[in-house]
Nucleic acid binder design. Structure first.
Lengths: 115, 115
DNA sequence: GCGTTTAATCGTTCATCGACGATAAACGAT
DNA sequence: ATCGTTTATCGTCGATGAACGATTAAACGC
């Protein structure tokens, strides 16, 4: 299931469409922040997320929806509240797919330039 | 400059703004495709990129601009043409920053659910 | 010099995103 | 049964993104 061997390049879904979808889910500071939050807590935390970000509740809910849709976060109800947690396998699958690219040799002898 | 040690989590820019910027650059199938192309060629290739994607030249040029701006690709002129190549360090820095998240324990005992 | 080739830029159009407030739905407690 | 709490959804609006064709700029060959 795309995680038997790391660095296998072909195994991990290197499908551009899929990778782009995951990347798009990651492409907003608020969503990165949410992931970091969940990672720090290690215990899955409820909607203290709402209190941590300077955004309207509805906005954060939308961000969570995007993350869930990308499979990066899972959620389950606890009473009237919600518990969110990371799905590290998904993120790992994504980074694996990217490593396939990262491991390629850089164009010979051209140093990194900013912008 | 953010590439002394891998997996250091704090060193690599875990700055949400920056990570989101890189992710946004990756958030389009055409751009992923371009990166894969460059990775496969290992020799930096010119604008055969233009012939590989079913998009207008101007569109692809724009995608390349985005990738360059994110530091994922570098370019230098060769005669009247251009040579593009990956900047693997950047991608590695990004995946490192993500691994910090991916290495977090999953929320105890909740299986991966799709969507 | 002159045309050719290659890439970047410009201007436009249409679609998608991000943010918000307001509202609705689900649940626990009283 | 009703109220307060918590989260998801809806409708709107402004901003950004993606795509294209046309144009411009640079580097080469002749």
């Amino acid at each position: 299931m795309t995680q038997s061997g790391r660095k296998s390049a072909d195994i991990v879904a290197a499908d551009p469409e899929h990778m782009a979808l995951v990347a798009r889910a990651l492409s907003h500071p608020a969503r990165i922040r949410i992931l970091q939050l969940l990672a720090e807590q290690d215990e899955c935390r409820g909607a203290e997320v709402f209190s941590e970000l300077p955004l309207a509740q509805s906005t954060i809910s939308e961000h969570l929806r995007v993350l869930k849709e990308a499979g990066l976060v899972s959620a389950h109800p606890i009473g009237t509240a919600m518990t969110y947690c990371l799905v590290p396998e998904r993120i790992a699958a994504f980074t694996d797919a990217l490593d396939f690219v990262a491991d390629a040799p850089a164009c010979d002898s051209y140093p990194v330039r900013d912008a």
